[in-house]
Design a protein around this nucleic acid. Structure first.
Lengths: 204, 204
DNA sequence: CGCCCCCCTGGCAGTCACTGCCAGACTAAC
DNA sequence: GTTAGTCTGGCAGTGACTGCCAGGGGGGCG
């Protein structure tokens, strides 16, 4: 399991790494294609493996679960999110810092179309949404100490304040993406997020 | 499939209905006991069925999924929620109406201990949390029109405002229960919810 | 009371995601 | 060239869940 360390570096050094990366891409592309073509639940692992030219066993070695085939690099999302929020200058308010984090994560998507395609799939499939929400919870937990430090008046862990603010920010992001997908990608996602926050905080 | 209609009525009329209700109770109790004893993931359907004295097939006829064995009557939650929010007098603000709904749902729990036990299980098991969050999404969708009507300045479906407020309210509820469980049931849940809302809306 | 219809139940086989185990092939280092 | 470390595929197994089919038992009817 050394491929993770290598993946971070720029150029693939050994032949194995290159093969791995190639296979990984092939699997990922095949999966996304089949998912969009015929739906997530209707696509079986066996089919993806067959069309990608690997065995099921190998596919599961690359991606532990079916969800990971769609999620892309969700750990990267989490990393960018916490780093951005944590990297905001001291004195930045909690909401401002969270906004910067959201903006950074949204900027990670390759293109508007790619983002729309993924979000659409995510919103259509119940099981996928559930998985995504669960991952969100982990991000929230990671953000908690960072946000707590930027809020005054929060005393100890028995105060739900910081947790509520983080969860509310994600709720706004969710409302924004849902509206965005419902409107077929019309408008700017970040603008929808801002309007969501404004509605929640009661300042128009 | 007539048992649903009968269940709404007060007294069980026929012998079948009584048998059904008895079996249902037995399964539910067995499941909850095993879940708390050895954990959700570690408990198999086969074990629950065996100890409850029914076949797996029958168990799945009573409860479509493993999650339903813990969720209790989540549809009832949804019903109470929407009815309460919708039943608030006109002129009541969105946040106020949602607060009333949350209070009504929390009041449904049999006892503090029962609620704590279920929440604890819910927060411990990742797969369960995901399922619960997904159900929450459906509640949010149901509440959307009700809340939209109580907000001024919301124009059409391209405005994420109402959706954001509903999602934020659930986020506050989530923060409250998480804090409540983390503190082993100390304090009042509704009070934690109020403090969460206050933190989000920026009024101390 | 006897009849038939219908509902409910249990068992069996099958699907799908996912895991452990093992043998074989290939790469990399010496 | 040999050896050591990886990667791969296949196979069997688990666990949630579903469709199908036969059998038993209740409920309404004459």
């Amino acid at each position: 399991m050394k491929q993770e360390a290598k993946a971070a570096a720029g150029g693939p050094a050994t032949l194995w790494d290159r093969t791995r990366q190639l296979a990984s891409r092939e699997i990922l592309d095949t999966a996304l294609r089949l998912f969009t073509e015929q739906g997530y639940d209707e696509t079986t692992i066996a089919q993806i493996a067959r069309e990608a030219g690997v065995s099921q066993r190998t596919l599961f070695r690359y991606f532990g679960t079916k969800e990971e085939l769609l999620g892309g690099d969700q750990e990267r999302f989490g990393r960018v999110l916490t780093e951005t929020v944590g990297g905001q200058p001291t004195g930045t308010g909690a909401w401002e810092a969270l906004r910067a984090g959201v903006a950074a994560v949204l900027a990670l998507h390759e293109s508007r179309e790619d983002a729309l395609e993924r979000f659409r799939l995510l919103h259509r499939t119940a099981s996928l949404r559930a998985g995504w929400l669960e991952k969100r919870l982990r991000f929230q937990e990671d953000l908690l100490p960072l946000v707590e430090a930027r809020m005054d008046g929060v005393r100890d862990s028995s105060d739900p304040g910081a947790r509520a603010v983080v969860a509310a920010a994600f709720a706004c992001l969710d409302a924004a993406t849902t509206t965005w997908v419902a409107g077929d990608g019309e408008g700017d996602l970040m603008d929808l997020y801002d309007r969501s926050v404004a509605a929640v905080r009661g300042r128009p």
